[in-house]
């Protein structure tokens, strides 16, 4: 059974997140880049809003947009991925434990600090009693959720599924990562440092193609460590009877750091005839940033335009390749919807 992406929603470092041309977007230029927060008051009652973690708010907003586009009120499943969950509340809870010698622990930050809070709160708001699962697999957290949803829709166990990736910036964790030179600072760009971001991206998978459909989700694959990127890509594509020459656009999750180069160069060498697109200069790096890349790929397929230049181009297949620090490799293959 074919699976289609019928709705997209996102909160990111970009103000009008769904602007299509990269020329309309702002490049993330600092070590730490907060997501632009939309107004949540129209969507979430004030009484609930005051207790919600930032990731929960972003997730509810992005999922609402995606469901609205797909014209689905309540999905069959809510499947989320997150690298670090609701990090701000985790830090708050742990800091309170330290400061107060494990006394005076308050419930709110503890409740919010669990990784499945976002998926749970979305389901509560939608009154969705269906399958609800959260994957916490570092930089393949989103792809794990995507794979779960894809397999269940393909197998006919679900008609549709809301899939999302959410991560938020926590000050203490970011400071540690800056100390270890994994994230750039205001003063210094490190050889292996990245510009960090945050955000929520949700998509709706469905077994029916509609006029709203962005793309067909052909397949996705995850590999924690790869011996050869070439073999990983070749094997993935051949399982779908596709050759690299058929890939019209290659979307890379490159941070353009010393760690990235070799892996992405291998991918480029295999798909040498493909147009090349990158996205992390607009989203920043975070554990589920690849969902933002997938969103861009969906729009390219729907509008048959390259993201970077706006150039119109026949696009049949797009391959999204992401990895971080030489680990957590993922591939996602999208195809243009049939007429």
């Amino acid at each position: 059974m074919k699976v289609y992406i019928n709705g997209l929603g996102s909160v990111s470092c970009q103000e009008g997140t769904r602007n299509f041309k990269s020329s309309d977007l702002t490049r993330v230029s600092q070590g730490i880049n907060q997501a632009q927060q939309p107004s949540y008051k129209e969507l979430i009652p004030a009484g609930m809003l005051r207790r919600m973690a930032k990731g929960v708010k972003m997730g509810i907003y992005a999922s609402h947009s995606a469901l609205e586009e797909a014209n689905i009120a309540v999905p069959d499943a809510v499947i989320t991925g997150t690298g670090l969950g609701c990090l701000i509340d985790s830090e708050k809870f742990l800091s309170t434990m330290l400061e107060n010698n494990e006394s005076y622990l308050t419930p709110t930050s503890f409740i919010q600090s669990t990784h499945n809070t976002v998926g749970g709160q979305i389901a509560l708001k939608l009154q969705c009693m269906g399958y609800n699962f959260t994957y916490v697999n570092q930089n393949t957290s989103f792809e794990s959720a995507l794979l779960d949803g894809l397999l269940q829709v393909q197998a006919g166990e679900l008609n549709n599924a809301l899939i999302g990736g959410v991560d938020e910036i926590g000050d203490i964790t970011m400071r540690f990562l800056q100390l270890t030179k994994k994230i750039n600072t205001v003063d210094e760009i490190f050889p292996k440092g990245v510009n960090y971001g945050e955000g929520a991206t949700f998509i709706v998978l469905d077994n029916k193609q509609t006029t709203q459909s962005y793309a067909e989700l052909v397949d996705t694959a995850i590999c924690n460590r790869v011996e050869s990127v070439e073999d990983f890509i070749q094997s993935f594509l051949s399982s779908q009877y596709i050759v690299p020459e058929q890939i019209d656009v290659l979307v890379l999750g490159s941070n353009q750091t010393a760690n990235d180069g070799a892996f992405y160069a291998q991918a480029q060498a295999i798909c040498s005839s493909s147009a090349l697109e990158t996205f992390k200069e607009f989203s920043g790096e975070y554990h589920t940033a690849s969902a933002f890349g997938l969103l861009n790929a969906c729009e390219m397929l729907k509008y048959q335009q390259l993201f970077s230049t706006g150039e119109s181009k026949p696009i049949e297949y797009i391959l999204v390749y992401n990895q971080f620090d030489g680990k957590d490799h993922s591939l996602t293959l999208l195809k243009k919807c049939g007429d």
Binding site: L105, T106, P107
Partner: peptide
Amino acid sequence: IDALELIV
């Protein structure tokens, strides 16, 4: 939940 926060 607020009541618990107030107790703390």
